[in-house]
Structures are given as structure tokens and as C-alpha cells.
């Protein structure tokens, strides 16, 4: 079985979260991710496939887990996504960041923000002020307390998934939980 026996999601999914699908669906998949982590970029399309496969049976939640010692732009990217979230455009920005064609920088984030309809100067201001720093830290610490050990880390119905982050492995684990 590819689930941890010890680690469970300590901060339940709730109103503070960014989710896709219907809350309370049979399967809730929570990803802790880092926008500068190549594995998270790969996992983005896996999540898409899982969403297609499960349809209305899935509620997907993304939380930030920027590992800034390895990924210097991960924090600012997370804050930019949260800034977009505050304007109701979290998922557009999330997708834009993960589907980018060049490496992360503040300029690129402003450009992507502009592309999803955010006011560039407001975005630049919130990044400069660190408006969403605390929110990202909250996500990060909730991950630490839940045993997030690298990115991406997935939780399926609050259980930490320790297997590979490819479609077949993750679907097998989800199927096992669905019973």
C-alpha cells in the first residue's frame, strides 16, 4: 500500500482552500506543490488526467509548499498565485505558472498575471509588500505538520500518498481508497 501509516492531513480542507470540483466529493485530492519544482510541473498534467478520469467524483485542492532553499523563485510564484486568488483568478494563474515556457522570474510572473487579467501594478505591489507571505507560510506549515516531505506531496482523503506521482500509480491508490 502506498500510503503513509503515520502522516495525515492535519489542516482539513475548508473555505480557505483553492479547490476544483465539488467539496465533499467521494475523493478529495490535496496537492502540496512548489511552482519551481520540475516534478510539480510534471504532476500538473497527471492531475489533469485524474480530473478527467474521475469527473464529479473528485475535489482537487492545491496548497503551497515552496522549498526556497532549492527554488529561489518558488515563494514569489506562490504569492503571485495567491494574489490572483484574491481576485478570483487562482486557477488561471496556477495553470499559467505551471504551463510557462520560460524559467520563473518576477518579470515573468507579472507578464503571466497580466495574461490572466490581473492589474500588473497591483500584483507588483502585493509582491513587494509580501501581502500573501503569511498565507503561503500557513500553507507551508500545514504541510510540515502533515508530513509533507518534498514536492509534490499528495493526500487522498487526508492520507499521505507515498507512491510515484504518475497517473497509473496515483489512480491505483485512489481506487484502493474508493474501495
Amino acid at each position: 500500500m502506498s500510503f503513509s501509516n503515520e502522516s495525515k492531513l492535519t489542516l482539513p480542507v475548508g473555505d480557505r482552500d483553492h479547490g476544483q470540483g465539488t467539496p465533499g466529493s467521494p475523493i478529495t485530492l490535496v496537492e502540496y506543490g512548489d511552482y519551481e519544482c520540475p516534478h510539480c510541473i510534471a504532476a500538473h498534467s497527471v492531475v489533469r488526467e485524474i480530473q478527467r478520469a474521475l469527473g464529479n467524483d473528485l475535489f482537487f485542492v492545491f496548497r503551497n509548499f515552496p522549498l526556497t532553499t532549492s527554488h529561489p523563485h518558488a515563494q514569489i510564484a506562490a504569492e503571485a498565485a495567491e494574489a490572483a486568488g484574491a481576485q478570483g483568478r487562482f486557477w488561471q494563474m496556477h495553470d499559467a505558472i505551471l504551463e510557462r515556457n520560460s524559467s520563473l522570474s518576477e518579470d515573468l510572473l507579472l507578464e503571466l498575471g497580466n495574461g490572466v487579467g490581473l492589474d500588473p501594478s497591483a500584483l507588483a505591489q502585493s509582491l513587494a509588500d509580501g501581502t500573501f507571505k503569511e498565507r503561503v507560510r500557513e500553507d507551508f506549515m500545514s504541510g510540515v505538520r502533515s508530513g509533507v516531505n518534498g514536492t509534490p506531496t499528495f493526500f487522498v482523503n487526508e492520507r499521505r500518498y507515498d507512491g510515484f506521482a504518475d497517473f497509473d500509480s496515483l489512480m491505483d491508490a485512489i481506487d484502493a481508497i474508493k474501495g
Partner: peptide
């Protein structure tokens, strides 16, 4: 920790 699994920091905290 099980082989190949990064234990995370929750247990320590």
C-alpha cells in the same frame, strides 16, 4: 523511515 521515503518533519515537531 521506510526505504526511499523522506520522513518529513511532523514527527519531530
Amino acid at each position: 523511515a521506510p526505504p526511499g521515503v523522506n520522513p518529513g518533519a511532523d514527527g519531530i515537531l
